[in-house]
Amino acid sequence: MTPLLKVEALSKHYGRHLGCGDVNFTLWPGEVMGIVGESGSGKSTLLNCLAGHLAPDTGRVIFETRAHGPRDTVTMTEPERRWLARTEWAFVHQNPRDGLRMGVSAGGNVGERLMAVGARHYGEIRAQAEDWLGRVEIDPTRIDERPRAFSGGMRQRLQIARNLVTGPRLALMDEPTGGLDVSVQARLLDLLRGLVRRLGLSAVIVTHDLAVVRLLADRLMVMKDGRVVEEGLTDQVLDDPQHAYTQLLVSSVLQV
């Protein structure tokens, strides 16, 4: 089996300040990896480098494309990268406002990616949009409403539907449950877990919420000050943390 994503010696500086440094990891098909760490530890920088939103200073990001096998997404051309972003990647923003078009109906939001890759049959686009709204537990009769009319949790689910409609293989999620209350978080996590398992999706989930990674992630990477300080199976890292920072992180979680 070939890895879906292979990251080698990835570094990104903001001027003299280190964003993330010397990150190496391999993501296998169907695997979910969590990245935890405090604010400013370089999690989002890393995720944005993986998604092509930021250009890393050094390092390689080898992605196993459907059409052309393993390709370095750092050196490929912008059109190729955008094509991958529309077809094989999903990017879920923390704030659904960043990932949705707030002035466009739910159906249009879900259909955009389909139309961007060439779908030109209105009836089929709409049928697929309805199907996906159902899968993320949004009433399909609300297909013509704009995201403004939706609650925070619904918006986040709509964003997920919009991203998954073209059948991507890699989902990059930046704090997907941030800003939602706990019961809505629980439903969203449940949904995400179901989708990831059913679609055989690989995912990289950035979060500072250890409960999220405990539920979703197979493997865990802990970052501090732009460096990866600990890496391993999720349960292993959370139950037997080795690095001082990880120990602090795990012990900081409130026990109810």
């Binding site: 078009r101 466009v104 109906s105 259909g111 955009e112 990616r113 139309m115 961007a116 890759v117 686009i125």
Partner: peptide, 10 residues
Amino acid sequence: YGLIQVRLYE
């Protein structure tokens, strides 16, 4: 050009 098609969809 996905976006302009979205407008036609809307």
